[in-house]
Design a protein around this nucleic acid. Structure first.
Length: 791
DNA sequence: AAATCCGCGTTTTTT
DNA sequence: ACGCGGATTT
């Protein structure tokens, strides 16, 4: 989200080289001894060391939460290079999120002078590979566009309409989901299931198939790939072109895959192909943290790794260096309720620490206020805000938390939750950029052909696109034919002509830096008029957004060219191996406009959260995986939310617990992010779709041992004064000062009657009906209410 | 072709 | 409650 931050980062990077990672402290050890193998192993326990120094062959690292997994992988990479077992560029390390990739890259760079290892997500890895090789498949050029989910839905919607179906009944997002599901899991295996499910929703299998076929064709026509295709096309390439497969398999002497429990079938196969020559495949993961089955992740990949690779060495990292005893105990007690897991110990020699606090709140506003107040209290006791995280199950919960934090003047940053790219002006500009790079992108064409308005309406556009379709031409190419325009009448023809000339003028932008291309577009389209015609009474500052985009693009240009320079040095200094040996010829991440587009397609801007930001971090539980914070708040620990109602539906008859168990793992992931303090909150009621619905505490709360909870049994120590903890929490005593129905007086509103009392302690509130002002909800802590005599 | 109005789905989770 | 898309106006 914070674009200025990225810009600053870029500046720093240019000035001082890579900055310290979020957990810089943990890598203090061998920084000085970079390249010295012995120094690289400093501070590792025997298991960690065994994993880091496994010489080759298959390696399975079963890593409990907080067991130093990232540390082991980064040290391993450095160790492989330092001991001459691999060149940096012969290593592929694959992560699941961009955050993880970024962190790993930074930490490896601290240990290792040489850059050049491919450290990225599966998707980024595949995109990079396809930029070089996709033309071998014959369907796309290397300038292919990557469609994100909303672009994909838009395309599907167009197709549904073209087929003459009603897009409200056949909802594009649903269709897209099924198409994606089919691509990701074994295609045949899932086919029947998806169709059955579709039928249930009143969508005929035939429609699904039709749309699916058209969608695949449209992607090819537009020279575009969706997220799933990035993976699938790599697999197709490897399968159809064994030579290419072998070249990469030879080149990547060592392949490492993190979060292996979350790989899907396609990713599994890609990893196997990559390791098919040297067989040095190291995977790392924790079956108890598998939380992506909805995305096709197959937990069997990790459970059966040993079966796939009989010679595999298994290393278990069980010592937890992160959390206090209480937190760890809670996590362990919880996860034990999952059936059929390998019994894995996690242990720590840390003291029990503070108890876990469970807080019942009246509603989501109350909950958010509670979090804000606790944050302030912690801050007053010297807790840094960037050591605090707030997690929630679903994105919509973000709102209440945000507004409470804003009200309490607590600075915060949000991870995930798209926002920025959803803004119209940003999407328009990006569509222009995409169209410049990939002239076949009809989706982008349609988006911007009338932006700013050129008098081109739906009717004339359909007429025009019919002409193009009849000849199998992309829209931007059809535009060059006078014959196509001749058929269009009125104002629209002039508009199309103007657009044609515009595209011609934008042509030179193809090879330039992103910021330069953006400026060219902005200069050509006439920002004034464009902004003028977008309704601005909503108060959104579109000009500022555009400015942010420019700053972001400029920052990216600087960073990528810097990186390219560094890599060029590696190349000239390093080996002269030929291309057939998989040497890093032309092996640089894309730069310029093309690179920028790839970047923003794959990297959510909010991935770059800043550890030194001085801000509280908000994110979903899914985003939280792999991170750690001294203080964690976990909100909405309620039935229907955690476990989520939808997950409960997915308890199939075959596996009646599957849905709940994944939700339990999600909770487990959340708990184990906390180092010192953990707060769990749940509400009595919550606003859902504008309606209040009642909530009961999550079943998972009952699975936590009472002894680790504040106010829990035994422990002897005074839970009651609660001061044993940070002294933060107010005891939950009912506020006896007022009773419902009582007459009270308020400084501002005058006299009224208490309708309702809610909450307690610092959250005690009264709903008071004032004759002159209606009903008001007052925080008793602040509102000075006086009891008045009746009559 | 743009402006306004109405009804419906939204809220799992991410690349 | 809200925003989007479709349908209806002007």
């Amino acid at each position: 989200m914070d674009w200025m931050q990225l810009q600053r980062l870029a500046a720093e990077e240019a000035a001082h080289g890579p900055r310290a990672g979020p957990r810089a402290g943990s890598e203090a050890g061998p920084a000085s001894g970079a390249g010295d193998p012995a120094a690289l192993l400093e501070g590792l326990n025997p298991e960690q060391r065994a994993a880091a120094t496994h010489p080759g062959g298959a390696l399975l690292i079963l890593a409990g939460p907080g067991s130093g997994k990232t540390r082991v992988i980064t040290r391993r990479i450095a160790w492989l290079v330092a001991t001459g077992r691999a060149q940096a560029w012969e290593i592929a390390a694959i992560t699941f999120t961009n955050k993880a990739a970024r962190e790993m890259r930074e930490r490896v760079e601290q240990l290792l002078p040489a850059r050049g290892a491919w450290i990225s997500t599966f998707h980024a890895f595949c995109a990079r590979l396809l930029r070089r090789e996709i033309e071998l498949l014959g369907t796309h050029t290397r300038d292919f566009t990557i469609y994100d989910t909303s672009e994909k839905n838009q395309l599907i919607k167009n197709l549904v309409k073209e087929l003459g179906y009603d897009a409200t009944r056949f909802r594009p997002a649903l269709l897209g989901g099924w198409i994606s599901a089919r691509k990701n899991r074994g295609r045949e295996a899932f086919e029947a299931a998806a169709e059955a499910q579709a039928e249930e929703q009143g969508i005929e299998a035939e429609v699904l198939q039709q749309v699916e076929r058209r969608y695949a064709a449209a992607l090819a026509r537009n020279n575009a790939l969706d997220f799933d295709d990035l993976l699938l096309q790599v697999l197709a390439l490897f399968e159809r072109q064994p030579g290419v497969r072998d070249a990469y398999a030879r080149r990547f002497r060592h392949v490492l895959v993190d979060e292996y429990q979350d790989t899907n079938r396609v990713q599994y196969e890609i990893a196997r192909h990559l390791a098919s020559h040297h067989h040095n495949l190291a995977v790392c993961g924790d079956p108890d943290q598998s939380i992506y089955s909805w995305r096709g992740a197959d937990i069997r990949n990790i459970l059966e790794f040993g079966r796939d690779n009989p010679a595999a060495r298994t290393v278990r990292l069980e010592q937890n260096y992160r959390s206090t005893g209480n937190i760890l105990r809670a996590a362990e007690a919880l996860i034990r309720n999952n059936a059929g897991r390998q019994d894995k110990r996690i242990w720590s020699d840390k003291p029990a620490g503070e108890p876990i606090l469970v807080c019942e709140c009246a509603d989501e506003e109350d909950e958010a206020r509670e979090v804000a107040l606790q944050v302030r209290a912690l801050q007053a006791r010297g807790q840094r805000l960037d050591g605090i995280a707030v997690f929630y199950r679903v994105n919509f919960m973000q709102r209440a938390l945000e507004s409470a934090l804003r009200l309490a003047r607590v600075p915060y940053q949000i991870v995930g939750g798209l926002e920025f790219y959803d803004r119209r002006e940003i999407r328009d500009l990006i569509a222009y950029l995409k169209l410049i790079v990939n002239r076949r992108d009809d989706l982008a064409f349609r988006r911007v052909v009338n932006v700013p308005t050129r008098g081109i309406g739906e009717k004339s556009l359909e007429q025009f696109s019919a002409w193009a379709a009849a000849r199998g031409l992309p829209l931007s190419e059809a535009l060059l034919h006078d014959e196509a325009l001749a058929a269009i009448k009125g104002r629209a023809r002039g508009g199309l002509q103007a657009f044609r000339e515009l595209l011609v003028r934008l042509e030179p932008a193809q090879g330039v830096d992103a910021a330069v291309a953006l400026d060219l577009v902005l200069g050509e389209i006439g920002v004034e008029r464009w902004l003028g015609e977008m309704d601005d009474e909503s108060g959104v500052d579109r000009e500022a957004n555009i400015e942010e985009l420019r700053a972001h693009a400029a920052a990216w240009d600087r960073m990528s060219s810097e990186l390219a320079r560094a890599l060029a040095e590696v190349e000239t200094a390093g080996t002269t191996a030929s291309a057939t040996d998989g040497a890093p010829d032309a092996d640089r991440p894309p730069t310029g406009l093309r690179g920028y587009l790839q970047e923003i397609a794959l990297v959510n801007d909010t991935d770059a959260l800043d550890a030194g930001s001085g801000k509280v971090t908000l994110m979903t539980l899914h985003s939280a995986k792999g991170l750690e914070f001294p203080v964690v708040f976990l909100c909405g620990v309620e039935e229907e939310l955690l476990p989520h109602a939808r997950a409960l539906q997915e308890n199939t008859s075959a596996d009646p617990e599957a849905g709940v168990e994944e939700e339990r793992r999600l909770f487990y992931v959340g708990i184990t992010r906390a180092e010192e303090r953990l707060f769990l909150t749940h509400c009595q009621q919550r606003l859902h779709f504008g309606q209040t619905s009642f909530c009961s505490p999550s079943r998972f709360l009952d699975e936590l041992p009472k002894e680790v909870l504040a106010g829990g049994a035994s422990d002897g120590a005074g839970d009651q004064d609660d001061g044993g903890a940070l002294g933060v929490y107010e005891p939950k005593t009912p506020d006896a000062t007022f009773t419902e129905g009582e007459r009270v007086e308020h400084d501002h509103f005058g006299r009224g009657t208490i309708v309702r009392l809610q909450g307690s302690g610092i959250n005690a509130r009264a709903t008071v009906r004032f004759p002159a002002h209606g009903e008001k909800i007052l925080l008793l802590q602040y509102a000075k209410l006086r009891r008045v005599a009746k009559g």
